[in-house]
């Protein structure tokens, strides 16, 4: 456990010292840009728009960081040959992977927290008060980007950073379309196609499960247990990804 913790903290330190949190400046700039446009263009509904934009930006930035940092976690250790000394220590490869993963989750958590703070500040400045319901959506966004980071790690255990990035981005896109995939499949006459899409429907993460941005902005009632169920789904899926990653990683040679 100490080993995992040490690796996680080290990974977090790396992200901080490599100035990952500078991306917050861009987040702030985007949000300020949005509010400037709001002043000029829209007549009403300012509150709704600023909430939409804020949640979407937190989501987008989170996904971007999860992919960019996630694909580098393992491959950088290999490329810079730091993995040799690390694995020469009494460290299981699975421990290494889990430590790395927890490190990025910690990084994403801190980043999300800071973005949330800035977002709430802006909403408050625009007279929207402090709307704690928004936190529900942000919590699920955090679960979503944690899933995306785990996808990135999985690919980076057997692929190059560039390809891992492409793959992870594809999974992110398809992850929002699985619902539609399923719909196409169930309306199809082709039995094989139906089975195939059904297979992918369950294999790929259904990231729409983590999207309640619209619901919280309009204060719509959520189905009871929706958040808990979605978060549990995310955690199980992350577990599935990490175990698969560890299996790939265990077999790998580091030349």
């Amino acid at each position: 456990m100490n080993v995992v913790k040490a690796i996680a903290v080290n990974t977090f330190k790396e992200a901080i010292r490599n100035k990952i949190l500078y991306s917050l400046i861009f987040f702030a700039l985007v949000m300020m840009g949005v509010s400037l446009v709001l002043d000029q263009a829209t007549v009403g509904q300012r509150n709704k728009i600023i909430k939409d934009m804020g949640l979407a930006s937190i989501n987008l930035f989170g996904v971007m960081i999860a992919i960019v940092v996630g694909i580098g976690l393992v491959s950088k250790e290999i490329e810079k040959r730091t993995i040799y000394t690390l694995l020469a220590k009494p460290v299981h490869r699975a421990q290494f992977l889990i430590g790395k993963y927890l490190g990025i989750v910690l990084t994403l958590g801190v980043e999300t927290l800071l973005m949330t703070f800035f977002f709430f500040l802006l909403v408050w400045l625009y007279g929207g008060g402090i709307d704690l319901v928004l936190l529900k959506a942000i919590f699920l966004i955090f679960i979503e980007i944690s899933v995306v980071a785990a996808v990135a790690i999985l690919f980076s255990t057997f692929s190059t950073p560039f390809l891992s990035g492409m793959f992870t981005f594809s999974v992110y896109v398809i992850g929002h379309l699985t619902e539609d995939l399923n719909r196409i499949a169930s309306s199809s006459e082709n039995f094989a196609l139906e089975k195939l899409t059904a297979f992918f429907y369950y294999l790929l993460p259904n990231l729409e499960n983590f999207n309640i941005k619209g619901e919280v902005v309009y204060h719509l009632p959520l189905a009871p247990g929706k958040i808990l169920l979605s978060a549990s789904y995310g955690l199980l899926y992350i577990g599935f990804l990490l175990v698969s990653s560890a299996a790939f990683f265990q077999k790998r040679d580091f030349k």
């Binding site: 446009v37 979407a56 987008l60 379309l177 990231l207 941005k213």
Partner: peptide
């Protein structure tokens, strides 16, 4: 809508601003 990847509301807002202009 599927292409919005869950950013439906944001896209709607952007289009709304486009409408105004």
């Amino acid at each position: 809508k599927p292409l919005a990847l869950g950013y439906d509301q944001m896209l709607a807002d952007l289009l709304w601003m486009k409408t105004i202009s």
